[in-house]
Simulated scan of single mutants.
Amino acid sequence: MSELESSPEISETLEYAGFLDRFWATLIDTLILMAITLPLTMIIYGGQLTIEGSRQLLGPWDIVINWLFPALAVVLFWHYKSATPGKMIITMKVVDEKTGLAPGLSQSVIRYLAYFVSILPFFLGFFWIAVDKKKQGWHDKIAGTVVVRLRK
């Protein structure tokens, strides 16, 4: 039995979360973040915010609301809850690959920044989840994390 399987944080049956489960969790998280950030951005920038055309930087609050707040929220959720709200709804956790415990703060930051590595080559790092033995994306491999389903 591996350290991960014997960890008290993991339920009786260890099951790596697959691509579709993780996709749905990400969709839920995106909708929640949009419900917070879009109204704030509209309140501050109003008419400057357009749906059509290319995305451009609107100003300093745009960076805070649409870049820093989501990054901080996601990293803190991973660190303190081992899951974002979407993962909680679908009963998944992000855990350290070796210990099965919540990822450390630096590990969570690395995992978030590694998302950009997974995105750049046509999202290949995310699609990798579908074929990997442990269902790890490139960001998981870089940060040393796995995402598990919680089954009782």
Rank of each mutant, 00 (worst) to 15 (best):
A130E: 14
I32Q: 01
A114L: 12
V109E: 00
L31W: 08
R111Y: 04
E97V: 15
S6F: 09
G104H: 09
A114Y: 06
E15L: 13
M88I: 07
G53H: 10
Y112I: 04
D62S: 11
A73C: 00
R55S: 15
D96Q: 04
W67F: 10
A143P: 00
K135R: 12
S7A: 06
N66S: 08
Y16A: 07
K152A: 12
K133Y: 05
D21A: 04
W67P: 00
K152F: 11
L33N: 15
D21M: 06
W78N: 02
L124R: 10
Q136S: 03
R151Y: 06
F19P: 14
V74E: 01
G100N: 14
A71H: 00
S11I: 10
L4I: 14
W128N: 07
A83R: 13
M1D: 01
K152G: 07
S7Y: 08
Q56C: 15
M42R: 14
W67I: 05
I43W: 11
E12W: 00
G53M: 12
S106H: 12
R149Y: 13
G53Q: 07
F77D: 00
K87M: 08
A83M: 11
G47F: 03
R22C: 08
L105H: 01
L57Q: 13
S106L: 13
I129H: 11
I28A: 03
Q48V: 02
P70V: 05
I89K: 01
G59T: 06
I32A: 07
P70M: 05
I51M: 14
R151W: 05
P85W: 00
I28W: 04
D132Y: 06
Y115S: 11
K98Q: 12
W24L: 12
E9I: 05
N66E: 05
S6E: 11
D62A: 08
P121S: 15
I10L: 06
I119C: 11
I36N: 01
L58T: 06
Y80A: 08
S106W: 14
S108R: 00
R55P: 15
V117A: 13
R22H: 09
L76I: 08
F127H: 06
V75Y: 03
R151T: 11
P70G: 04
L124F: 15
G59R: 09
F23W: 11
T145L: 09
Q56V: 15
F116T: 01
G53W: 14
M1E: 02
L76E: 04
V117L: 14
L113M: 02
D132K: 13
A17D: 02
I51R: 14
L38E: 13
